[in-house]
Design a protein around this nucleic acid. Structure first.
Length: 738
DNA sequence: CCTCTTTTGAGG
DNA sequence: CTCAAAAGAGGA
């Protein structure tokens, strides 16, 4: 152990570690220079070693000299985080009130988070000269293992002019790629191939105008909100703008919601930019390829980074454009740990990198819409709109409301809907039934005494899954066999209550025994390759009726689809969350957008008990602007975002009543200094008990973001000091569910 | 008085 | 977070 004192002209390294402690930890680091800021370091920490990031260098420390220990080593094998990367992490730490070390370490690939040594790339790949002579090759990157090279080949990620050193099975892989038409030609004896380039189709005038606006902004910070109805060709706009950025040798970050769309978009991008190296980063990716992709982005070799919310933190030294597709999507908000909004972080990142950021959506969030409507004042967005469908023959579907009070019903399916389905079957067109509930029935009920089985760990009914005769909790995953008798009165007369995808499937199969039906929900897609199989079949027209949850609502285009039925839209009306109408609207517009995309007339039938609700009128006209105006007026009157800013103290405890009790105590602490903020009562959370944890919350509201931030800054240490270890708590800034 | 469980505090 | 010491709870 070093006993040198800091006064001996030793430098001190301040290191951010993955611990729930506000500040970094100081270590003696004699040889350190300011140049090392951003590097990974291994330090002794208590009884163990820990990995952390050097965030600062100082001449002296406030820590008593006797307590200071020496930094063990700096990891020079890894490229360091840039000042811009660190600035982004600092912003997140401050804005979301989360310890810096945890912010940074959570954004790093897992290998780098532990103090154990890791091995870096073993295989080198080379860029060839035009002549393709291997001796002229220059190394352009490395991969962790040969398997990753093969993966990259099969993904088409190693495009033109690339040879692989030491690739024994390369020929086999290349042959497979030839057959799949990913590549056109293989130079014999070498791993050289040329990627097949996809043809451009031309932009319409609306699209070119929008692209021109974005391109004009390249090189400096400017946020755009790009709105456009489904099928108006937003992706084409992204691609055209990206082309300009890539030509300048800069990088593009594209964020997409957490859905199964990444492979499709990836294929689309790859086809358009076959020469450009692209990495795809999402949570389903295995550890090693994710690390590799991260390194490629950080080194600048990968020019396109396509990913879900976690990708927003990927270091990119020459970032020239950020695209956030479906910017309204709830999956951009992380719901645990650092509760960041990838969309908001991306906008801030664009500001740091001084580049434009494009937020695209057919149904933007009201916050973004408001920012674009009120451009001119402060930090606001420039509105861009696509008003025509890219394929002119594709018209918007007709939306009809089916009044469930008047319709003739067959097991919850209206006569009109059944007739419409029958018509489509006769015409060999496809239909889609949208019901946002998986399982057979959302509950089981005793017909004698009305007892309903509940989850022992959550405030929720158990969902009946008929296929394996089990009851499942969709909140905690708990499952049991279906009980033979009522637990209360002993009756054997237990019946399913309500409808889920499985039950609808059964009903439809009974009504249309000769039709080909497929169910699309988390359960049916669980098996490996199931998603691909079902969607392929649907695209080929081998499915007549698709039944599914919101997984069906996004992205997929089925050319023969002309009818969409929406079965339980009303459910959202009963939600206490002030954002429920917004979510319902965007979901309905999304799902309606599936119908009639290629020249065939589409029809959307919405079953509802409240046909007079103004929300449905807006859905019928698919008029987002009208809907947004209505909602914004409500928000203005209720003082909700975007007319105020929110933060939520979320408290969880195992013992009954403890969460609510502590939330109340925290509220009292806050009341003493609540300047410029309004504090709501401590209340049980919407799902009061989840996974055995009782939940309570305190809502904080303010017109001023600064006042809100200042308040939380003072409040948080008070809560931390008062909180018993048996309660978990977090402050959720800009919560998405209140 | 001993053992097992829960709570608390520190880590540089 | 992780580790371990301290403080409680219960048993013989």
């Amino acid at each position: 152990l070093s006993k040198l004192s800091p006064s001996d002209n030793n430098n001190i390294a301040c290191i951010a570690l993955d611990v729930p402690v506000e500040n970094g930890f100081d270590f003696l680091a004699p040889q350190i220079s300011a140049n090392d800021i951003g590097r990974l370091a291994i330090v002794p920490f208590g009884k163990r070693k820990a990995a952390g990031i050097i965030v600062d260098i100082a001449e002296s420390s406030n820590v008593p000299p006797g307590k200071l220990r020496s930094l063990e080593r700096i990891v020079y094998d890894l490229p360091k985080l840039s000042a811009l990367d660190l600035a982004l992490f600092r912003f997140c730490s401050g804005y979301y009130h989360h310890p810096l070390g945890q912010v940074i370490l959570n954004a790093l690939p897992v290998q780098f988070r532990s103090s154990r040594p890791f091995r870096l790339p073993l295989v080198t790949y080379y860029q060839l000269t035009r002549a393709g002579r291997e001796q002229d090759a220059a190394p352009i990157g490395r991969a962790l293992t040969q398997r990753h090279i093969l993966e990259r080949l099969s993904g088409g990620l190693l495009a033109d002019n690339v040879a692989i050193a030491g690739l024994s099975r390369g020929k086999i892989a290349l042959q497979a790629l030839l057959e799949k038409k990913c590549i056109e030609r293989v130079a014999p004896g070498k791993g050289v191939f040329t990627a097949a380039a996809s043809p451009l189709y031309a932009l319409n005038t609306g699209q070119s105008d929008v692209v021109a606006r974005i391109v004009a902004a390249l090189g400096h910070y400017q946020p755009f909100l790009l709105t456009g109805i489904t099928g108006s060709g937003k992706t084409e706009v992204y691609l055209a703008a990206m082309r300009q950025v890539l030509q300048k040798g800069e990088q593009v970050l594209v964020l997409v919601p957490e859905i199964n769309l990444t492979p499709q978009l990836e294929a689309q991008f790859r086809a358009r930019f076959p020469q450009t190296r692209m990495v795809s980063l999402h949570s389903h990716l295995a550890r090693a390829p994710r690390t590799l992709g991260w390194l490629e982005a950080q080194s600048g070799h990968a020019q396109i980074v396509l990913g879900t919310r976690l990708a927003v933190f990927t270091p990119m030294p020459r970032l020239g454009l950020i695209v956030i597709d479906e910017e309204h999507d709830a999956s951009y908000k992380q719901q645990e740990g650092l509760r960041y909004s990838a969309r908001d972080v991306a906008v801030y990142r664009a500001r740091l990198a001084d580049c434009p950021v494009v937020l695209g959506s057919a149904t933007p969030s009201l916050e973004s819409y408001f920012n674009a409507e009120h451009s001119g004042k402060g930090l606001r967005y420039t509105a861009l709109a696509l008003t025509q469908r890219a394929i002119p023959s594709a018209t918007l579907p007709v939306v009809r409301l089916l009044d469930m009070n008047r319709e003739r019903l067959h097991d919850g399916l209206s006569e009109t809907l059944l007739v419409a389905l029958r018509t489509r079957l006769a015409k060999h067109e496809q239909s889609l039934l949208f019901i946002n509930r998986r399982g057979y029935a959302p509950a089981l009920v005793c017909r004698q005494c009305a007892w309903m089985p509940e989850c022992p760990h959550c405030t929720a009914h158990l969902v009946f899954h008929k296929s394996d005769a089990r009851l499942r909790c969709h909140h905690c995953g708990q499952q049991t066999r279906v009980p033979p008798h009522c637990a209360k009165c002993g009756s054997a007369d237990l019946a399913p209550a309500g409808q889920g995808t499985q039950r609808i499937m059964e009903l439809i199969a009974a009504h249309f025994p000769d039709s080909r039906i497929a169910r699309v929900d988390r359960d049916s897609l669980r098996a490996r390759g199931a998603a691909q199989r079902i969607f392929d079949a649907a695209h080929k027209g081998e499915i007549d009726i698709l039944i599914g949850t919101q997984m069906l609502a996004k992205g997929h285009d089925f050319p023969k689809l002309t009818l969409v039925g929406v079965l339980n839209a009303d459910a959202a009306m009963f939600s206490a969350d002030f954002r429920a109408p917004e979510r319902l609207f965007s979901q309905l517009v999304q799902v309606a957008g599936r119908a009639g995309r290629a020249g065939l007339k589409g029809e959307v039938l919405v079953q509802t008990s409240f046909p007079a609700h103004p929300l449905y009128a807006a859905v019928q006209e698919q008029d987002f602007t009208r809907f947004a105006r209505l909602q914004l007026e409500e928000r203005r009157l209720s003082g909700m975002p975007p007319f105020s800013h929110l933060a939520l103290l979320r408290v969880e405890a195992r013992a009954a009543g403890q969460a609510l009790k502590f939330a109340g105590a925290a509220l009292e602490l806050g009341k003493a200094h609540a300047a410029g903020v309004a504090l709501y009562d401590a209340v049980p959370a919407p799902l009061e008990k989840k996974g055995g944890w009782e939940r309570a919350q305190v809502l904080v509201q303010s017109r001023s973001r600064t006042a809100l931030q200042r308040f939380i800054g003072d409040w948080r240490p008070q809560i931390a000091a008062a909180a018993p270890r048996s309660t978990r708590w977090i402050i959720d800034v800009d919560p998405s569910e209140v």
